[in-house]
Amino acid sequence: MILFILCFILFMVGLYGVMTRKNLIKIIIGVAVMEYSVNLFFILVGYVDGATVPILTKGFEKGPFVDPLPQAMILTAIVIGLATTALLLSIAIRLYRKYGTFDIRKINSLKG
């Protein structure tokens, strides 16, 4: 249970970063931290005590495995997370070229 709560705290640190930081790069870091904490939470839920890696090797064909389903889901989610982070960073570069700053208080003109 303490592991689940620590995972929740990590998510909340990411949310705190997104809400209170004024720098675009730090906001992106906050988003990525939130995503990592969710990934870790899924794997924590799927863990079984004393179980082995879900790979069929000699002598371990039947043996208790950790749950392979959340691992398969998170494998997809990690790669998608990289894609979204790269997209956010490219938007940040574009904004920097236009405004010359990462400060979101100065990026406030809607004129094209």
């Binding site: 990934n39 794997i43 890696v53 990690i78 990289l82």
Partner: peptide, 13 residues
């Protein structure tokens, strides 16, 4: 947590 596939992907990412 016995998830080596994820560890490899996570290192690269």
């Amino acid at each position: 947590l016995q998830a080596p596939d994820l560890a490899i992907v996570q290192v690269v990412v």
